[in-house]
Amino acid sequence: MNKEHSLNKKTDYTGSKQGMWMFLFTELLLFTGMFLLYSVFRSRYQQEFHAASSELSRTIGTLNTVILLTSSLTMALSVNAIRKDKNKISLIFQGLTVFFGLFFLANKFFEWSAKIHHGIYPNSPGLLAHGKGETMFYGLYYLMTGIHGLHVLAGIVLLLIMMVLTKKGSLNSDSFVRLENSGLYWHLVDVIWVYLFPVFYLIS
């Protein structure tokens, strides 16, 4: 590989990451809008938000936080491994990340199912009987954790593709920016959860 070639590659490498960060900022703004909506209604319905929040399971919320933070660790380690030419180890860490992502979604599934079973879902008669504040809380809860869940799902699909590419050898220590960018996406979804967790589960 001549010098000019590798220089071009470096430019592409930085450019790809910058592009990814730009995209992540639009994601941040998407969630900022929803967090704003949440804080305005929380200041208007403090008691109701508190009452509604106490119905959510702190245990499941904490468990999911631990799962997602750990998945971020395995994600970072997979990028680290591929940089050091350890493709197999990277593949294992990518697989672990996907596993933790699925684990998170499974918990979310059971959590939502239990709530829906108890008659708490958008526009349900049981919820409407509780009044405006709780309806707002659960409306935002389903909206925000739902959109977040879709992002986790998208991250899982992205990582599955990366696993295939790693296995094929098209991701390696010379060309790993696609894995790194997938990692950036995964970590951002984690950052958003870091804020969602106290906002919905820990209102004291």
Binding site: S72, D190, V191, V194, S204
Partner: peptide, 25 residues
């Protein structure tokens, strides 16, 4: 902690987000 409780949770969340951004990202 009441009002200070929500401030504390936002501050802790931001510290966590900072760690993820600085090191993992």
């Amino acid at each position: 902690f009441g009002r200070y409780g929500s401030l504390a949770s936002v501050l802790i969340a931001s510290a966590k987000a900072g760690l993820i951004l600085l090191f993992f990202m």
